[in-house]
């Protein structure tokens, strides 16, 4: 075999453009793919960077929309910098941007410069769950009349179907206070972030509702969600906190719309 200077250069594979873009779109340090150019052999550095900017900017912007409160707390510029790193490390695998950003809470927790904002990852979890509730399937909530019609002896043994929008988020920090202060104001002068709070998210019709749960209630709602009979959910809650108020918890069960109105699942 003879090597000559005029040997034709290997043409880029015609099937490689998507792989070539994939290797470079989220890697700003790599040169643009060799398969692209400007017209008439012009350079394509800035040209290819338009795609890089579009991809990163659109995904970072999506994260600001999924996490508006975390954005407010960090300031938009800081948030965008942290989000850009997240996008590069964890680009979306779903075509639905409304599904993006799971794992962002862990990304925040692992980012040293903001480690002092210990409550922030849980605020992010709450925001992600809020968006899941916003887009959850439509289902009629439990009808209070259906509940009221139960004979008292049946009440103890009933099991409920969770509504698709129901979430329980528990935190060592004051996530409910922080969330509501940023979302609907008025902003208190000072928030003591170190107070543990748990939140019940529901969306009985179209509006997402969030409620702060009292002690014992998270255990109660989580047990009901898993299909435990009411009596068992109540005793688990009381075990955790003797001051657990069952009447209040049942009231919340009905008024929050956290459970579906599709009748009661049969007992085990």
């Amino acid at each position: 075999m003879r090597f000559t200077a005029d040997r034709p250069r290997r043409a880029p594979s015609p099937t490689a453009y998507d792989a070539a873009f994939g290797q470079t779109l989220l890697s700003p340090d790599r040169p643009q793919p060799s398969c692209v150019a400007g017209p008439g052999g012009k350079a394509a550095v800035k040209r290819f960077n338009v795609y890089r900017n579009n991809v990163t900017h659109s995904l970072v912007t999506a994260l600001t929309e999924i996490y508006p409160i975390v954005t407010q707390i960090l300031g938009e510029q800081n948030f965008r910098m942290i989000a850009r790193d997240f996008v590069r490390a964890h680009p979306p695998t779903s075509k639905l941007v409304l599904e993006y950003g799971r794992g962002f809470a862990e990304h925040l927790a692992d980012f040293d410069p903001i480690r002092h904002l210990r409550y922030l990852p849980d605020v992010a979890r709450l925001e992600r769950a809020w968006l899941d509730a916003y887009h959850a399937a439509d289902r009629a909530p439990l009808d209070p009349a259906e509940f009221a019609a139960l004979p008292p002896q049946a009440l103890a043994e009933i099991r409920l179907s969770p509504h698709p929008a129901m979430h329980v988020i528990e935190s060592d920090y004051a996530i409910h206070t922080i969330f509501t202060a940023h979302r609907s104001g008025p902003m208190p002068r000072r928030i003591d972030a170190g107070i543990p709070e748990a939140v019940l998210i529901s969306r009985p019709l179209l509006r997402v509702e969030i409620r702060k749960l009292a002690r014992g209630q998270p255990v109660f709602f989580k047990a009901l969600r898993k299909g435990a009979p009411l009596r068992q959910a109540a005793s688990l809650a009381m075990e955790q906190d003797p001051s657990f108020d069952l009447v209040e918890a049942i009231g919340l069960t009905i008024e929050s719309g956290a459970f579906s109105g599709s009748g009661f699942p049969p007992p085990n």
Binding site: P14, A19, F21, G22, L59
Partner: peptide
């Protein structure tokens, strides 16, 4: 196109115009 190797780039990316 917008997806390669399971990564979704959320942009309208260009393609060469060939028989393939």
């Amino acid at each position: 196109w917008s997806t390669h190797d399971d990564v979704f780039y959320n942009d309208l990316l260009p393609l060469p115009y060939t028989d393939v």
